[in-house]
Amino acid sequence: MGIYQFGQNVSKMFLSTSYKVEVIGKENIPEDGPTILCCNHIHNFDPPLLGAYIKRQLHYMAKQELFEMPILKNLLPRLGAFPVRRGMSDKQAIRTAMKFLKEGKMIGLFPEGTRSKDGQLGKGLSGAGFFALRTEAVVIPCAIIGPYKAFKSLKLVYGTPIDFTQLREQKASAEEATERIMEEIKKLIDKHEPKQ
């Protein structure tokens, strides 16, 4: 067993015993080929949750500061993460993500760029739209519906792929593509959020 699978199993065990995790729509994730999971971001546990219950390895951007910590700087790359400098255009992070997609791998993005302080869906940054338009990757909207409270319901929803054919033909901007992604994430939240 590789270190990624080990980390995945540990994450799954921790999350499943700490929360009532309900996973919906796993069948929407392609078995292979370039894939982008775009998810809302409400908690530090979102990255391991997003990848814990699926078979494929997930590569995701993590803030540069984490790679400067003694233990994490060696561990994170082995767990599929790669660094991104927030608040600026990080060309190295973009190249790394494009390389993974060209190799037919799957990456996870949090289009908001940072955790939501109030749990509400924020505005998406243009990065997710950029990757969606510049590659032939399948784009899957995802929603994590919390909150993360011990032994309470926690939903992880993988939506159906977003069709970017029209936006690509129209040469839409990265901002427009991200808006489309955020709309789909919001639809998942609205559909699966517990009704008050």
Rank of each mutant, 00 (worst) to 15 (best):
I140M: 07
L121E: 15
A143K: 03
Q92T: 13
L72S: 13
V157N: 14
K63C: 04
A150Q: 11
P111D: 09
Q57A: 06
G51F: 08
L66S: 07
G51N: 09
A137R: 14
L121N: 15
A132F: 11
C38K: 02
F82S: 06
E112G: 15
A132T: 12
C39E: 05
A150V: 13
L75S: 12
F130V: 00
C38G: 12
F131E: 09
S126T: 12
L156A: 00
F131Y: 14
I107K: 11
R78S: 03
K117C: 00
K99I: 03
P48H: 09
N44K: 10
H59Q: 14
S116L: 02
I144M: 10
I54W: 11
R134E: 13
D90S: 04
D90M: 02
N74S: 10
E65I: 01
L50H: 12
L125H: 15
A132N: 12
F67C: 03
A137E: 13
F110W: 11
L121S: 14
K117Y: 05
G122Q: 15
S89G: 14
A143L: 08
M106H: 05
E112F: 07
P47K: 05
A52K: 08
G127V: 02
K99M: 09
Q64K: 10
S89E: 13
L50W: 10
K123A: 00
H41K: 05
N40Y: 00
I145G: 01
R95L: 02
G104N: 07
G104V: 12
V138I: 14
A62P: 14
A62Q: 10
I71L: 15
D118C: 03
E136W: 01
R85A: 07
D46P: 00
C142F: 02
F67T: 09
K117P: 05
Y148E: 05
L156S: 01
K149W: 07
L58G: 01
F131S: 02
D118Y: 11
Q92W: 02
K152M: 06
I145V: 06
M88W: 01
K91V: 00
A137C: 09
G122D: 01
G119Q: 11
L76M: 10
L125P: 07
K99S: 14
K105G: 04
Y148L: 03
K73T: 12
I94W: 09
T135N: 12
D90L: 01
V157K: 15
K91L: 04
F45K: 13
L37K: 01
K73D: 04
V139I: 15
K73A: 09
K149A: 00
L72E: 13
V138Q: 04
D90N: 05
K99C: 02
K123P: 00
E136M: 03
G87M: 05
K149E: 10
K117R: 15
F82D: 05
G87W: 04
K102A: 01
S116R: 15
A93N: 07
L58H: 08
Q92S: 13
M61I: 04
F100I: 01
R95Q: 13
I140N: 09
A62E: 12
I71A: 12
L133F: 12
F151M: 10
G87E: 08
A62T: 12
T96S: 02
K99R: 14
Q120Y: 08
L101C: 06
F45T: 11
K91F: 02
G80V: 04
L49K: 09
I42D: 03
I144Y: 10
D46K: 03
H41P: 14
Y148T: 06
C39I: 01
K63N: 13
C39S: 15
M98S: 02
Y148K: 09
P83G: 00
P70D: 08
I54H: 08
